[in-house]
C-alpha cells in the first residue's frame, strides 16, 4: 500500500467501487435498526429515547425484535456472568455489519456492582467488541443520542473493503465543553430579577 496519504491516493478511493461503498455507508448510517433488548434501568432510558420527546426514529432508528434484522445492539443495563453468554449469542446472531453500544456504567465497567458483587460482569467488552461507551447511571437519552451520533460518524466511514475502525470511543459526560444539549442547568444560581415563581 502506498504511503502517500494525499487525498485521492488511498486504495479505497482508487477502486471504482468506492462510490457504491460510500452510498452503502450512507444507507447504513441512516437506517440503524437497534435490537429490542434491555436488562436493567438503562432500558427505561432507552425506551424513553424512542418516545415522543427524544424520538430516535428521527435518525432512522427503529427497534427490531430479532437480531437477524438489527444493525445495532445497545447493551443497556447490568450484565451478569450468566447473561453475558446470552448477549454474546445475540451478538453472534446479528448480521454483519453490526455495531455495539455499551450504555451505562454497568455495561461499561460493572458500575455500582463492581466492588461488592460476585455475579456481575465488569464490562460487556469482555464478551463483545464495543464501539461506543456511554457513561452515566443511567445515561440520559441526550447522552444516548450523543453516542448514536458518534456512532453514525463511524458508520459513515465504514467501508466494505479495508480496515474497520475499532478504537473505542467514550462519549464525554455533561461537563464536556461540546454538546450544548448535555449541559446541566445551574439550579443554584439566583435569578437576576429575584422573584416571580422561583423557589422561595
Amino acid at each position: 500500500m502506498t504511503t502517500d496519504e494525499r487525498p485521492g491516493n488511498r486504495a479505497d478511493e482508487q477502486v471504482h467501487m468506492a462510490a457504491v461503498d460510500e452510498f452503502l455507508a450512507w444507507g447504513k448510517e441512516h437506517s440503524l435498526f437497534y435490537l429490542l433488548f434491555a436488562t436493567a434501568c438503562c432500558g427505561i432510558e432507552l425506551m424513553q429515547a424512542g418516545g415522543p420527546r427524544y424520538d430516535v426514529d428521527r435518525l432512522g432508528m427503529i427497534p427490531r425484535a430479532t437480531p437477524r434484522q438489527a444493525d445495532l445492539m445497545i447493551v443497556a443495563g447490568t450484565i451478569t456472568h450468566k447473561m453475558a453468554g446470552r448477549v454474546r449469542t445475540l451478538w453472534e446472531q446479528m448480521t454483519e455489519p453490526r455495531w455495539v453500544v455499551s450504555m451505562g456504567s454497568c455495561a461499561n465497567s460493572g458500575g455500582p456492582f463492581s466492588k461488592w458483587s460476585y455475579s456481575v460482569l465488569n464490562g460487556i467488552d469482555k464478551y463483545v467488541p464495543v464501539d461506543i461507551y456511554i457513561p452515566g447511571c443511567p445515561p440520559r437519552p441526550e447522552a444516548l443520542i450523543d453516542g448514536v451520533m458518534a456512532l453514525r460518524e463511524r458508520v459513515k466511514r465504514y467501508r466494505t473493503v479495508g480496515e474497520r475502525d475499532r478504537t473505542p470511543y467514550i462519549v464525554a459526560g455533561p461537563e464536556a465543553p461540546f454538546g450544548g444539549h448535555c449541559k446541566v442547568p445551574d439550579f443554584t444560581a439566583k435569578k437576576p430579577d429575584g422573584g416571580g415563581g422561583g423557589s422561595a
Binding site: L24, G27, K28, G60, E96, P97
Partner: peptide, 10 residues
C-alpha cells in the same frame, strides 16, 4: 436508506 442497507447486509 433502508433498502440500500438491506442490500449491504450479511
Amino acid at each position: 436508506a433502508d433498502g440500500i442497507k438491506m442490500l449491504g447486509k450479511e
